[in-house]
Amino acid sequence: MFGETAVPLIDTAKRTRKTQSVSLYEGEKVREILDEISILQEHLESLNDQDLNDINSSEYETKLLIQLVQNHDLKVLKLYHSQRSEKIKFIAIQELPLSQEMRLKLSERERIFHSKYSDLLRKYKCEYPPSLNLSATLVPPKEALTAVRVLKDIGDLMTLNGYVEFRKGTQAIVRKADPTIEKLIKLGYLKIVGNKESTIINPL
């Protein structure tokens, strides 16, 4: 039936809509939809070749239906790709590198998109006030300082509080808004400990 090839892709898009991770790129299904559009286009052209006077109403309806299905297929493709690129953009704006697992899930074209979008953000940040960090986590700040536990050896680092030695297993009190610290937390080198939210005991 017309347009059925697009259904699995719609299901995938729906299923992964609310997840943060990116699913494996379904290149095969994308190709099937593209083939369907091309076949429908050939069919449409064969109808167009006929003399306008010879086309009866049922053929006219078929023509209209083909156009609708083509439109639907293209919209599904666009939706699927835009949903994936939204997730890629979210990774890029946090200044996170693509993990090996993620690289395997993305198509070649999406990997290029990630690097080009990161470049675009970098250019935009050049115009951004230096005291602000566009990639900062969008959580309202509650305290200026926070205790962090070092999960992997980093060595000496220049932070806003001066040089701090980060050795595995140790703890340090650092400025929460420090871009270096934020990046290390995102990358999994540091872990926030002992802030008020985590020490609150549930009375129930």
Binding site: Q41, K78, S107, R109
Partner: peptide, 30 residues
């Protein structure tokens, strides 16, 4: 500047991902 560059990037991405395979006629119809 960001808007213009972003539009170019998105169009380029869509074209390279799936639109380049399609014949121009099918896109014109749409």
């Amino acid at each position: 500047e960001f808007a213009e560059r972003y539009k170019r990037l998105i169009e380029e991405h869509e074209h390279a991902s799936f639109l380049h395979v399609l014949p121009q006629e099918s896109l014109d119809v749409l």
